[in-house]
């Protein structure tokens, strides 16, 4: 709790820098528009403006300042514009739909009104796009984690696997594999694998290696003394695994899971980028950049940040409960 004030301060500083940057970032655009609109500006022509320093321009044309602050397609929007955009495309949509939607085009069995259903299906809805990204992320993360844990167990218990695979698992983390994520999707589409699976494959791949490396480290974390103690009880291999190695690996596993889920989300978003995916946060970023809709880009970016924060927080919560129950933390 003692960190709350410092955190708020740092966030406030970041927001302050953002606010201060809005006017200078957009001033030339706004001045341009004002010049074309026939407003009285100094210097009068775009050419001269181009040769004048930004600070000079801002000082000479205070009348353009309001326009610069609330420019419609800004290079940098004001923070609240982004918040409004997110609100309108999530809760705002739901509000509107609710009292339009009680017409009852669907059967009555649905607990949600049509309006609410439409928010989830609405192509404008950020919730819809976020879900399009989250679903494959979660599926891929589950697959990647499962396989990663299995491989880690194999590596710890099989010397050949250790020698063969481990160097590659470590080396593969230095390769910017994420950059080819979009291609994998298209290739999989070409061989007829569609829907959730291609995107999941990317996120499973990205969460796989952190889990393998972390889990191997964790399973090997018990010291010689701990292992010797079990040997004096003449414990079986399975007992050693369940009673010692697995519990002591959990802190390492959770640390890797947090890295893995963040990587998985990034993977899905990047996978959506240049493949012309129509749904998902990545596609929102891309269409935003095509049509110069900066506010849309920022909104998608923040939605992605919210998703990432939620996922990491969720794992953190599970970690805390599990480790507390095991007595590994107090």
């Amino acid at each position: 709790m003692r960190n709350v004030l410092p955190i708020l301060t740092v966030v406030a500083v970041l927001l302050g820098v953002w606010y201060l940057a809005v006017a200078p970032m957009n001033f030339r655009l706004a001045l341009d528009a004002a010049t074309r609109g026939g407003a009285d500006v100094t210097p009068a022509t775009p050419d001269e403006q181009g040769q004048t320093g930004l600070i000079r321009l801002m000082l000479d044309n205070p009348s353009v300042m309001p326009a610069a602050l609330s420019f419609e397609r800004p290079r940098l929007p004001q923070p609240q514009a982004v918040v409004v955009e997110i609100y309108e495309n999530t809760i705002g949509l739901a509000r509107n739909c609710e009292w339009q939607g009680f017409g009852g085009e669907r059967d009555n069995w649905s607990p949600l009104s049509d309006g609410c259903l439409r928010v989830i299906e609405n192509r404008r809805s950020l919730i819809f796009h976020a879900w399009q990204t989250l679903a494959p992320t979660l599926l891929g993360f589950a697959i990647g984690t499962g396989l990663g844990v299995l491989l880690a167990v194999g590596i710890v218990y099989n010397r050949t696997m250790d020698l063969s695979v481990m160097p590659w698992a470590i080396a593969s983390q230095t390769i910017p594999i994420l950059a080819i994520a979009p291609m994998v999707i298209v290739v999989l589409n070409a061989v007829g694998i569609q829907g959730l699976l291609p995107k999941s494959l990317i996120s499973s791949y990205l969460s796989f290696f952190p889990v393998v490396v972390g889990m191997v480290k964790g399973l090997r974390s018990p010291g010689a003394m701990d292992l010797d103690l079990l040997r004096t009880y003449s414990a079986s291999g399975a007992q050693e695994f369940w009673k010692l190695r697995l519990p002591s690996s959990l802190p390492y596993l959770f640390a890797s899971l947090k890295i893995g889920i963040a990587a998985a989300l990034v993977g899905t978003i990047v996978a959506e980028l240049p493949t012309g995916a129509r749904f998902g946060l990545g596609s929102r970023l891309l269409t935003g950049s095509y049509y110069g809709q900066t506010v849309q880009i920022w909104a998608a970016l923040f939605m992605a940040a919210i998703c990432a924060a939620l996922l990491v927080w969720l794992i953190g919560a599970v970690e805390k409960r599990t480790l507390t129950r095991l007595g590994l933390v107090r």
């Binding site: 963040a262 990034v266 978003i269 970023l285 970016l301 992605a304 990432a308 924060a309």
Partner: peptide, 8 residues
Amino acid sequence: ALPIVGTA
């Protein structure tokens, strides 16, 4: 931990 590539 955020998808910072998105700022691209």
